[in-house]
Simulated scan of single mutants.
Amino acid sequence: MSSPNLSERLQAVRKRRGLTQKDLATQSGVSLSLIRKLEQGEREDTRLETLRRLAKALGVSTSALIVRPDVAEGTSLDWTPVRDALLQRDGVRSDETPSVWGVLEAVEMAEPLFTDNRYRELGALLPTLLRDADALGSAGRRVRSRVLHLAALLMISTRQFDAAEIALRRAQDDAPGRLEEAAIVNTRCWLLMRLGDLSGTLSLAAREADEIEPRLSRATPEELAAWGGLMLRVSTAASRNNEPGESEDALRFAQAAAVILRNEWAPPSDPLRTFGPIAVATRRVENYMIEDRPDRVLALSERIPKAGFRARASSRNRHRLDVAKASAQLKRYTDAFEVLQEIRAISPEWILNQRMARDILGKIVAKRRILTPEMRDMADFIRLEY
Protein backbone atom coordinates (compact mmCIF):
# COMPACT_ATOMS: atom_id res chain seq x y z
CA MET A 1 0.00 0.00 0.00
CA SER A 2 1.32 3.45 -0.83
CA SER A 3 2.04 5.81 2.02
CA PRO A 4 -0.67 8.36 2.79
CA ASN A 5 -0.33 11.73 1.10
CA LEU A 6 -0.29 15.10 2.81
CA SER A 7 -4.07 15.53 2.82
CA GLU A 8 -4.61 12.17 4.50
CA ARG A 9 -1.82 12.67 7.02
CA LEU A 10 -2.93 16.14 8.02
CA GLN A 11 -6.55 15.14 8.42
CA ALA A 12 -5.74 11.99 10.40
CA VAL A 13 -3.42 13.73 12.86
CA ARG A 14 -5.81 16.65 13.32
CA LYS A 15 -8.69 14.31 14.14
CA ARG A 16 -6.56 12.31 16.56
CA ARG A 17 -5.82 15.55 18.37
CA GLY A 18 -9.53 16.30 18.61
CA LEU A 19 -9.22 19.55 16.65
CA THR A 20 -11.52 21.04 14.06
CA GLN A 21 -10.05 22.71 10.99
CA LYS A 22 -10.91 26.06 12.57
CA ASP A 23 -9.13 25.08 15.80
CA LEU A 24 -6.00 24.14 13.84
CA ALA A 25 -6.12 27.42 11.92
CA THR A 26 -6.32 29.39 15.16
CA GLN A 27 -3.51 27.50 16.88
CA SER A 28 -1.15 27.38 13.90
CA GLY A 29 -1.74 30.78 12.32
CA VAL A 30 -2.34 29.04 8.98
CA SER A 31 -5.45 30.23 7.18
CA LEU A 32 -8.56 28.07 7.39
CA SER A 33 -8.95 28.14 3.62
CA LEU A 34 -5.44 26.76 3.12
CA ILE A 35 -6.00 23.99 5.65
CA ARG A 36 -9.18 23.01 3.83
CA LYS A 37 -7.36 22.93 0.50
CA LEU A 38 -4.59 20.79 1.99
CA GLU A 39 -7.00 18.28 3.46
CA GLN A 40 -9.03 18.13 0.26
CA GLY A 41 -5.89 17.43 -1.76
CA GLU A 42 -6.12 20.67 -3.73
CA ARG A 43 -2.64 21.71 -2.59
CA GLU A 44 0.44 19.47 -2.36
CA ASP A 45 3.18 22.06 -2.83
CA THR A 46 2.91 23.79 0.53
CA ARG A 47 5.95 25.58 1.87
CA LEU A 48 7.98 23.85 4.54
CA GLU A 49 7.41 26.88 6.72
CA THR A 50 3.65 26.27 6.65
CA LEU A 51 4.01 22.58 7.40
CA ARG A 52 6.20 23.38 10.38
CA ARG A 53 3.52 25.66 11.81
CA LEU A 54 0.92 22.96 11.39
CA ALA A 55 3.21 20.35 12.94
CA LYS A 56 3.92 22.58 15.91
CA ALA A 57 0.20 23.13 16.53
CA LEU A 58 -0.45 19.40 16.25
CA GLY A 59 2.46 18.46 18.50
CA VAL A 60 4.25 16.31 15.90
CA SER A 61 7.45 16.59 13.91
CA THR A 62 7.28 18.25 10.54
CA SER A 63 8.42 14.95 9.03
CA ALA A 64 5.16 13.37 10.17
CA LEU A 65 3.30 15.58 7.71
CA ILE A 66 5.75 16.33 4.97
CA VAL A 67 5.48 14.97 1.47
CA ARG A 68 8.83 14.84 -0.23
CA PRO A 69 8.52 16.78 -3.48
CA ASP A 70 9.52 15.51 -6.86
CA VAL A 71 12.33 17.31 -8.60
CA ALA A 72 11.55 20.93 -7.83
CA GLU A 73 11.16 23.72 -10.28
CA GLY A 74 14.28 24.17 -12.26
CA THR A 75 16.12 26.97 -13.90
CA SER A 76 16.10 28.30 -17.43
CA LEU A 77 19.76 27.34 -17.80
CA ASP A 78 20.53 24.24 -19.87
CA TRP A 79 22.44 21.85 -17.62
CA THR A 80 22.48 18.97 -20.12
CA PRO A 81 26.24 19.24 -20.79
CA VAL A 82 27.00 19.04 -17.07
CA ARG A 83 24.66 16.07 -16.64
CA ASP A 84 26.24 14.26 -19.57
CA ALA A 85 29.70 14.83 -18.17
CA LEU A 86 28.63 13.57 -14.74
CA LEU A 87 27.26 10.43 -16.35
CA GLN A 88 30.39 10.13 -18.53
CA ARG A 89 28.24 9.83 -21.62
CA ASP A 90 28.98 13.01 -23.57
CA GLY A 91 31.36 11.22 -25.95
CA VAL A 92 33.73 14.20 -26.08
CA ARG A 93 37.38 13.21 -26.14
CA SER A 94 40.59 15.22 -26.34
CA ASP A 95 43.97 14.31 -27.71
CA GLU A 96 45.56 16.22 -24.84
CA THR A 97 46.36 14.36 -21.65
CA PRO A 98 45.45 16.35 -18.55
CA SER A 99 47.77 16.48 -15.56
CA VAL A 100 46.78 16.30 -11.93
CA TRP A 101 48.31 19.69 -11.24
CA GLY A 102 46.64 21.22 -14.28
CA VAL A 103 43.21 20.02 -13.22
CA LEU A 104 43.89 21.14 -9.65
CA GLU A 105 44.74 24.63 -10.85
CA ALA A 106 41.60 24.64 -12.97
CA VAL A 107 39.34 23.68 -10.08
CA GLU A 108 41.00 26.28 -7.86
CA MET A 109 40.18 28.83 -10.54
CA ALA A 110 36.59 27.60 -10.86
CA GLU A 111 35.73 27.52 -7.17
CA PRO A 112 35.54 31.33 -6.77
CA LEU A 113 32.87 31.32 -9.48
CA PHE A 114 30.71 29.30 -7.15
CA THR A 115 31.50 31.32 -4.05
CA ASP A 116 30.62 34.47 -5.98
CA ASN A 117 27.42 32.84 -7.33
CA ARG A 118 28.50 33.16 -10.96
CA TYR A 119 26.62 30.03 -11.95
CA ARG A 120 26.53 30.50 -15.72
CA GLU A 121 30.27 30.84 -15.96
CA LEU A 122 30.87 27.84 -13.76
CA GLY A 123 28.33 25.79 -15.67
CA ALA A 124 30.17 26.49 -18.88
CA LEU A 125 33.46 25.30 -17.39
CA LEU A 126 32.26 22.23 -15.57
CA PRO A 127 31.79 19.77 -18.47
CA THR A 128 35.37 20.14 -19.54
CA LEU A 129 36.63 20.12 -15.97
CA LEU A 130 34.71 16.93 -15.23
CA ARG A 131 36.01 15.21 -18.37
CA ASP A 132 39.58 16.18 -17.54
CA ALA A 133 39.22 14.93 -13.99
CA ASP A 134 37.84 11.62 -15.25
CA ALA A 135 40.76 11.25 -17.67
CA LEU A 136 43.23 11.33 -14.77
CA GLY A 137 42.28 7.82 -13.71
CA SER A 138 43.27 6.51 -10.29
CA ALA A 139 45.99 9.14 -9.90
CA GLY A 140 43.40 11.89 -9.89
CA ARG A 141 41.07 10.64 -7.18
CA ARG A 142 41.64 13.56 -4.83
CA VAL A 143 41.17 16.32 -7.39
CA ARG A 144 38.32 14.47 -9.10
CA SER A 145 36.44 14.25 -5.82
CA ARG A 146 36.91 17.98 -5.39
CA VAL A 147 35.59 18.70 -8.90
CA LEU A 148 32.58 16.44 -8.38
CA HIS A 149 31.85 18.07 -5.02
CA LEU A 150 31.92 21.48 -6.70
CA ALA A 151 29.52 20.19 -9.35
CA ALA A 152 27.19 18.88 -6.65
CA LEU A 153 27.13 22.25 -4.89
CA LEU A 154 26.26 24.01 -8.14
CA MET A 155 23.53 21.50 -8.98
CA ILE A 156 21.92 21.90 -5.56
CA SER A 157 22.11 25.69 -5.82
CA THR A 158 20.29 25.61 -9.16
CA ARG A 159 17.76 22.97 -8.08
CA GLN A 160 19.12 20.19 -10.28
CA PHE A 161 18.72 17.70 -7.49
CA ASP A 162 19.00 14.45 -9.42
CA ALA A 163 22.27 15.59 -11.00
CA ALA A 164 23.52 16.63 -7.55
CA GLU A 165 22.92 13.12 -6.26
CA ILE A 166 25.01 11.65 -9.07
CA ALA A 167 27.84 14.09 -8.36
CA LEU A 168 27.78 13.43 -4.61
CA ARG A 169 27.82 9.68 -5.03
CA ARG A 170 30.83 9.85 -7.33
CA ALA A 171 32.59 12.44 -5.15
CA GLN A 172 32.25 10.21 -2.09
CA ASP A 173 33.61 7.21 -3.98
CA ASP A 174 36.77 9.18 -4.72
CA ALA A 175 37.09 11.01 -1.40
CA PRO A 176 40.73 10.70 -0.28
CA GLY A 177 40.20 10.94 3.48
CA ARG A 178 37.77 10.93 6.36
CA LEU A 179 37.36 14.70 6.59
CA GLU A 180 36.75 14.99 2.86
CA GLU A 181 34.04 12.36 3.23
CA ALA A 182 32.51 14.37 6.07
CA ALA A 183 32.45 17.48 3.87
CA ILE A 184 30.60 15.58 1.15
CA VAL A 185 28.16 14.18 3.69
CA ASN A 186 27.50 17.73 4.91
CA THR A 187 26.59 18.72 1.36
CA ARG A 188 24.40 15.64 1.01
CA CYS A 189 22.57 16.84 4.13
CA TRP A 190 21.97 20.16 2.39
CA LEU A 191 20.52 18.28 -0.57
CA LEU A 192 18.19 16.31 1.70
CA MET A 193 17.16 19.54 3.41
CA ARG A 194 16.23 21.18 0.11
CA LEU A 195 14.24 18.09 -0.83
CA GLY A 196 12.31 18.39 2.42
CA ASP A 197 13.69 15.24 4.03
CA LEU A 198 14.21 16.61 7.53
CA SER A 199 14.37 13.24 9.27
CA GLY A 200 16.96 12.05 6.77
CA THR A 201 18.99 15.22 7.24
CA LEU A 202 18.95 14.91 11.02
CA SER A 203 19.86 11.25 11.01
CA LEU A 204 22.70 11.57 8.51
CA ALA A 205 24.22 14.74 9.99
CA ALA A 206 24.06 13.47 13.56
CA ARG A 207 25.54 10.10 12.65
CA GLU A 208 28.40 11.66 10.72
CA ALA A 209 29.09 14.18 13.50
CA ASP A 210 29.24 11.36 16.05
CA GLU A 211 31.71 9.44 13.90
CA ILE A 212 34.15 12.34 13.54
CA GLU A 213 33.62 14.03 16.91
CA PRO A 214 37.04 15.25 18.05
CA ARG A 215 38.43 15.76 21.49
CA LEU A 216 38.14 19.54 21.59
CA SER A 217 41.29 20.11 23.62
CA ARG A 218 43.39 18.30 21.01
CA ALA A 219 41.44 18.86 17.80
CA THR A 220 43.00 20.44 14.75
CA PRO A 221 41.25 23.46 13.16
CA GLU A 222 40.19 21.23 10.28
CA GLU A 223 38.58 18.70 12.61
CA LEU A 224 36.80 21.45 14.52
CA ALA A 225 35.44 23.00 11.32
CA ALA A 226 34.22 19.68 9.91
CA TRP A 227 32.49 18.67 13.14
CA GLY A 228 31.14 22.14 13.87
CA GLY A 229 29.71 22.40 10.37
CA LEU A 230 27.79 19.17 10.84
CA MET A 231 26.48 20.41 14.18
CA LEU A 232 25.12 23.47 12.42
CA ARG A 233 23.38 21.20 9.93
CA VAL A 234 21.84 19.22 12.81
CA SER A 235 20.69 22.44 14.46
CA THR A 236 18.89 23.81 11.42
CA ALA A 237 17.26 20.50 10.53
CA ALA A 238 16.05 20.04 14.11
CA SER A 239 14.69 23.58 14.23
CA ARG A 240 12.77 23.04 11.01
CA ASN A 241 11.53 19.71 12.32
CA ASN A 242 10.05 21.33 15.43
CA GLU A 243 12.68 19.88 17.77
CA PRO A 244 13.98 23.04 19.53
CA GLY A 245 15.82 21.20 22.29
CA GLU A 246 17.98 19.20 19.91
CA SER A 247 18.48 22.28 17.76
CA GLU A 248 19.81 24.31 20.69
CA ASP A 249 22.06 21.49 21.91
CA ALA A 250 23.66 21.16 18.48
CA LEU A 251 24.15 24.90 18.21
CA ARG A 252 25.83 24.94 21.60
CA PHE A 253 28.29 22.26 20.48
CA ALA A 254 29.02 24.22 17.31
CA GLN A 255 29.60 27.34 19.39
CA ALA A 256 32.16 25.49 21.50
CA ALA A 257 34.13 24.57 18.39
CA ALA A 258 33.84 28.10 17.00
CA VAL A 259 35.17 29.65 20.21
CA ILE A 260 38.31 27.55 19.91
CA LEU A 261 38.79 28.55 16.28
CA ARG A 262 38.12 32.26 17.06
CA ASN A 263 37.85 33.30 13.41
CA GLU A 264 36.11 32.10 10.27
CA TRP A 265 38.15 29.38 8.66
CA ALA A 266 37.84 27.30 5.48
CA PRO A 267 39.40 23.85 5.91
CA PRO A 268 41.42 22.24 3.09
CA SER A 269 38.97 19.33 3.10
CA ASP A 270 36.05 21.71 2.40
CA PRO A 271 37.46 24.95 0.97
CA LEU A 272 34.07 26.29 -0.11
CA ARG A 273 32.58 26.32 3.37
CA THR A 274 33.80 28.44 6.27
CA PHE A 275 33.14 27.75 9.91
CA GLY A 276 33.57 29.99 12.91
CA PRO A 277 31.71 32.42 15.18
CA ILE A 278 29.97 34.23 12.32
CA ALA A 279 28.72 30.96 10.84
CA VAL A 280 27.26 30.01 14.21
CA ALA A 281 25.66 33.43 14.70
CA THR A 282 24.02 33.44 11.27
CA ARG A 283 22.69 29.92 11.87
CA ARG A 284 21.14 31.11 15.12
CA VAL A 285 19.50 33.93 13.17
CA GLU A 286 18.15 31.38 10.70
CA ASN A 287 16.73 29.32 13.55
CA TYR A 288 15.05 32.39 15.01
CA MET A 289 13.45 33.00 11.63
CA ILE A 290 12.24 29.41 11.44
CA GLU A 291 10.76 29.83 14.92
CA ASP A 292 8.88 33.00 13.87
CA ARG A 293 10.88 35.36 16.07
CA PRO A 294 11.58 38.25 13.69
CA ASP A 295 12.42 40.65 16.49
CA ARG A 296 15.27 38.39 17.61
CA VAL A 297 16.44 38.03 14.00
CA LEU A 298 16.88 41.79 13.61
CA ALA A 299 18.40 42.26 17.05
CA LEU A 300 21.05 39.57 16.56
CA SER A 301 21.78 40.52 12.96
CA GLU A 302 22.79 43.99 14.14
CA ARG A 303 25.67 42.40 16.07
CA ILE A 304 26.94 40.32 13.15
CA PRO A 305 29.73 42.06 11.22
CA LYS A 306 29.07 42.79 7.58
CA ALA A 307 32.49 41.39 6.67
CA GLY A 308 33.64 37.88 7.41
CA PHE A 309 31.63 35.86 4.91
CA ARG A 310 34.87 35.10 3.17
CA ALA A 311 34.22 31.78 1.47
CA ARG A 312 30.66 31.83 0.19
CA ALA A 313 28.58 34.80 -0.83
CA SER A 314 25.54 32.55 -0.52
CA SER A 315 26.07 32.35 3.25
CA ARG A 316 25.90 36.12 3.46
CA ASN A 317 22.95 36.24 1.08
CA ARG A 318 21.01 33.60 3.00
CA HIS A 319 21.51 35.57 6.19
CA ARG A 320 20.39 38.78 4.52
CA LEU A 321 17.25 37.05 3.22
CA ASP A 322 16.40 36.18 6.82
CA VAL A 323 16.79 39.86 7.67
CA ALA A 324 14.52 40.83 4.76
CA LYS A 325 11.89 38.31 5.82
CA ALA A 326 11.97 39.47 9.44
CA SER A 327 11.63 43.08 8.30
CA ALA A 328 8.63 42.20 6.16
CA GLN A 329 6.97 40.32 9.01
CA LEU A 330 7.40 43.37 11.21
CA LYS A 331 5.87 45.49 8.41
CA ARG A 332 9.13 47.26 7.67
CA TYR A 333 8.56 46.80 3.96
CA THR A 334 10.96 49.46 2.78
CA ASP A 335 13.80 47.87 4.75
CA ALA A 336 12.90 44.43 3.39
CA PHE A 337 12.89 45.66 -0.20
CA GLU A 338 16.23 47.40 0.24
CA VAL A 339 17.78 44.11 1.37
CA LEU A 340 16.41 42.34 -1.71
CA GLN A 341 17.93 45.03 -3.91
CA GLU A 342 21.24 44.64 -2.09
CA ILE A 343 21.29 40.89 -2.70
CA ARG A 344 20.35 41.28 -6.34
CA ALA A 345 23.17 43.74 -6.88
CA ILE A 346 25.70 41.35 -5.34
CA SER A 347 24.42 37.97 -6.57
CA PRO A 348 21.76 38.19 -9.30
CA GLU A 349 22.05 34.53 -10.28
CA TRP A 350 21.73 33.40 -6.68
CA ILE A 351 18.54 35.31 -5.93
CA LEU A 352 16.90 33.91 -9.06
CA ASN A 353 17.00 30.47 -7.46
CA GLN A 354 15.51 31.54 -4.12
CA ARG A 355 11.81 30.89 -3.63
CA MET A 356 12.13 32.70 -0.32
CA ALA A 357 13.04 35.92 -2.15
CA ARG A 358 9.89 35.63 -4.27
CA ASP A 359 7.80 35.01 -1.17
CA ILE A 360 9.19 38.11 0.54
CA LEU A 361 8.65 40.30 -2.51
CA GLY A 362 5.15 38.87 -2.90
CA LYS A 363 4.31 39.99 0.61
CA ILE A 364 5.69 43.47 -0.05
CA VAL A 365 3.76 43.77 -3.31
CA ALA A 366 0.53 42.62 -1.66
CA LYS A 367 0.76 45.50 0.81
CA ARG A 368 1.27 48.17 -1.85
CA ARG A 369 -1.51 49.86 -3.77
CA ILE A 370 0.92 51.14 -6.39
CA LEU A 371 4.29 49.57 -7.15
CA THR A 372 7.34 51.73 -7.67
CA PRO A 373 9.30 51.23 -10.91
CA GLU A 374 12.02 49.52 -8.85
CA MET A 375 9.51 47.06 -7.41
CA ARG A 376 8.10 46.23 -10.83
CA ASP A 377 11.59 45.71 -12.14
CA MET A 378 12.47 43.41 -9.23
CA ALA A 379 9.25 41.44 -9.67
CA ASP A 380 10.01 40.91 -13.35
CA PHE A 381 13.60 39.96 -12.59
CA ILE A 382 12.85 37.23 -10.05
CA ARG A 383 9.78 36.08 -12.04
CA LEU A 384 7.19 36.93 -9.44
CA GLU A 385 3.65 36.10 -10.50
CA TYR A 386 1.41 38.97 -9.53
Rank of each mutant, 00 (worst) to 15 (best):
A175C: 06
R332T: 04
E96Y: 08
E121R: 05
R16M: 14
L192H: 09
L122F: 05
S314R: 14
R17L: 14
I166M: 01
E342V: 02
A175E: 05
P221Y: 02
A324H: 00
F337Y: 06
L272C: 13
R141Q: 07
A313Q: 15
S145V: 06
M356I: 02
S145K: 05
R283A: 08
N186H: 13
D45K: 11
R344T: 07
K331T: 11
K363R: 14
I35E: 13
M1T: 15
V82L: 02
S3C: 05
K325S: 12
D78M: 01
Q21P: 03
R368K: 14
M375Q: 11
R178P: 15
L129D: 09
S28D: 07
T372P: 01
E264Q: 09
I364N: 01
M155P: 05
L24R: 02
V297M: 04
E108L: 11
L6A: 06
P244A: 04
S235E: 08
E342L: 06
A379G: 02
A135S: 13
V143Q: 02
D70M: 08
V259G: 01
T158M: 01
V103P: 14
A345W: 10
E349L: 05
P81K: 06
A206S: 14
A55L: 03
T62H: 03
S347D: 15
G102A: 11
R293G: 02
K37V: 00
L232V: 13
D70V: 07
I278G: 08
S199D: 15
I184C: 11
E111T: 03
D162T: 01
L300S: 04
L38D: 09
A345H: 12
H319D: 06
T46E: 15
A139P: 01
A164P: 05
T128K: 12
G229M: 02
T128W: 10
S63L: 09
F275L: 05
G196W: 03
W101D: 15
Q27E: 01
Q255V: 00
A139V: 00
N353K: 04
T158Q: 04
A106L: 07
D380T: 04
D270T: 00
A167W: 10
A219Q: 10
A133F: 14
A171L: 00
L19R: 08
L129W: 12
P112A: 03
